[in-house]
Design a protein around this nucleic acid. Structure first.
Lengths: 299, 299
DNA sequence: CGATCTTACGGGATTCGTAAACATA
DNA sequence: TATGTTTACGAATCCCGTAAGATCG
């Protein structure tokens, strides 16, 4: 036999109203039912909570000492219930997400704004991290949701594609490539210029090398950097040309650089959502993924 | 439909064991029953607490956020239950008592010692107050139990007699009354000596005056004080003789005074326990009253 | 005598446990 | 195929509500 929250709520009602009859209506029970409930509660506790005279009900000193404790704990339970409801209805919650810098600084803000306008009570933390760290964070469960390139088959990580990104050539505004038009460019054409590339080991760099060597092409790499922004500045300085994901085109434009799509081969890379493969998603994370999908479905 | 503590305990068990089967044995239920219970709990909360794959159970992020809260609250409930049990079994509690000074300094310590040896975990506060204040404190409920003279019919106060106190004459060791023997003395004999009495209004003084005037006796009051100890010192100084409750005889002896019982009339006053007439007694207070009764029943 | 709590008892709902079905590694 | 969860269903339990009883002012 165990005491129930209902019994304690009834106890509270009796203590407050000083009457079994009134208390019974407060907790939506019949008088006798409440009487039995209190009797059982007292039996469970091993002593009287109330001193009953047929005309009046009074708390015993022990009951009086218990009252504030019970009051507080019942209120705490209500808070827990409310908290749970809020979390499940997305009226409350936390969401930790991460995105690679190129995405965080381009498409993400609009998505976040849309999400926040729907679920204003969910607090979001965004981390800008490179793909490798992002993968690690997702695997460890430190962040629930990441936006990055498809990492391939990684343990404990699930990838949901959002869109596919292609490469663009990057060069200074006055470069020869700029004067040759604005249409697609072949990688072969890029190979004849000094090339500023990402440092190995970089998944991006490896991807490019793999595709080009399959076509018997090879870049004339004269410089390497490990941040895309640095590569951009090198190109702006006139040290060479480069190739970056189309997603980063806005950043390149900001540096005063020009871009043209690259084909032959059209190197494609999936960008999407990384989540932990075995842990369940929070409703907040699911809603964010929906928002991301909606954002790219609309195009 | 309401959630029960049992459901939350089951939730805790599942979260800790990561298994419905193990958790079921922990909470003494069958697997299916626990499964249903969790299903109902989730329905009540409006979302999933666990992500079930047929081979494994994992907390959802929402469930994980709830877990520590639930853990804390369940522990709190256990504490409340334990607290209640302890209070009812006199392994814990507070007891505020008051006693008139003559009693507090004579019989009370032995009673308190006996009580504490039985119920060592009950903390007791003792107030030494005069009869009028004591009555007031009991009426207000500030103290639960007082030891004093019978106050007569007072609103909201119940009196339980413990013993009846008689009066003794008090005089210096070398006094004529001391040389006249050690047996009972008549009040009439006391009237021929200068008398040191309690100041009016004092219930003790009023009692004496009432009884003596009924016998056409009158004291030769030469001095008055409002504390019994002061009266004793005046007598010790040789300013006169006095009459005090037998209960105070030890105090008088300490001042080097002698005493003899007073009769004709044998003025008797009930000493007993004052409690609030309408409020219920705590188990601790009841036990203390029992201890007091036992103390005087043994004689 | 009236108001109020308690006891008695029948009905109903919830919950439990056993057995079977189901789903994944 | 084996392990572990869910569904199905019969049964027991618990709890509630109505009606009668008891008690005190």
């Amino acid at each position: 036999m165990n005491v129930s929250l209902k019994q304690w709520r009834a106890f509270l009602a009796v203590a407050q109203t000083q009457s079994f009859a009134e208390a019974a209506s407060l907790v939506h029970m019949s008088q006798p039912a409440l009487s039995i409930a209190m009797k059982n509660l007292e039996a469970e506790l091993g002593g009287q909570l109330f001193a009953r005279s047929t005309r009046a009900v009074a708390l015993t000193p022990e009951g009086a000492e218990l009252l504030p404790q019970v009051q507080r704990l019942l209120a705490d339970w209500d808070n827990v219930m409310a908290d749970a409801h809020q979390r499940f209805s997305l009226k409350r919650g936390r969401l930790a997400i991460a995105a690679m810098p190129s995405f965080a600084s381009t498409a993400l803000p609009a998505v976040l704004q849309a999400f926040r306008s729907r679920f204003s009570e969910i607090s979001i933390t965004v981390q800008e991290v490179i793909a490798e760290q992002l993968l690690e964070q997702v695997q460890e469960g430190r962040i629930e949701l990441g936006v990055s390139f498809d990492p391939g088959n990684q343990p404990d990580v699930a990838f949901t594609p959002l869109f596919s990104d292609h490469f663009v050539a990057v060069f200074p505004a006055g470069h020869a490539l700029a004067q040759a038009g604005t249409g697609p460019l072949d990688w072969a054409q890029l190979c004849s210029y000094p090339f500023v590339g990402l440092q190995r080991p970089s998944s991006l760099r490896a991807l490019i090398d793999r595709h080009l060597s399959a076509q018997a092409l090879s870049l004339n790499v004269v410089l390497e950097a490990n941040q895309l922004a640095t590569v951009g500045r090198m190109v702006a300085t006139g040290l060479g040309v480069s190739a970056v994901p189309k997603l980063c085109e806005p950043q390149m434009h900001e540096l005063g650089l020009s871009c043209r799509a690259l084909v032959a081969p059209d190197i494609e890379r999936q960008v999407g959502v990384l989540t932990h493969g075995r842990r369940p998603l929070s409703k907040a994370a699911s809603a964010m993924i929906d928002e991301l999908k909606r954002h790219y479905a609309e195009r």
